[in-house]
Amino acid sequence: MDRATLSALNAARRARMAAVLVSDLDSGAARVVTEDAVADDPLAEALRAAFASGKAGVVATAGQRVFLNPHLPPARLVIIGAVHISQALAPMARQAGLDVTIIDPRTAFATPARFGAERLIADWPEDALQDAPLDRWTALAALTHDPKIDDAPLVAALRAGCFYVGALGSRKTHAARLDRLHAAGLTGAETGRICAPIGLDIGAASPAEIAVATLAQLIAHLRRRAP
């Protein structure tokens, strides 16, 4: 691998862009393929599999041994609402390997006393997300029930193609939410990606149980790329 290739790979990693390093194991020659360039690549099929699974491996092609090493951005979770469920969800998600941020403009909720060492931003989501924009490798869980706080980041998450978008609230609450989002110009296909009521249907009752149901649903989307 030459230095230009290494620089390109590291730049993609810093920009949270998925990339596959393709190395010829006989010569050591290497190149970086980003997702937008897969279709035109002679290894398109193997590259797609690498992007989907995130697993590295050797591919034999035309007498060559080629090593595909995917570098997928680390998964993040943005929690809207410094609420009771978030107090359980944040540490669970962190243990599962997610990079967690909690956002809530209500300073009475977003206090270090309630969240310890968790990354906490006491600001409106629209403002807080400008520094770390949502992307395909980010999950968003909207947990405040308050349209003033939840709606804008839900729209942003759908537009950014977040791999998981969940929203707390009963079916009735969600129906009202859908009406608002459709009035704001979102399509049914877009809002259909919102998981609501949030979490797998396991009869969760307590905040911690709802956190478990939510995290399990999130992981299913992450690993299976469920729609």
Partner: peptide, 23 residues
């Protein structure tokens, strides 16, 4: 990340080898 460290070392004029688990 080791690859970021490798790049920094190379920029500092050091010769670098990269080992990768293949199988």
């Amino acid at each position: 990340h080791p690859l970021a460290i490798a790049e920094a070392w190379a920029e500092a004029g050091r010769q670098v080898a990269i080992a990768t688990v293949i199988e």
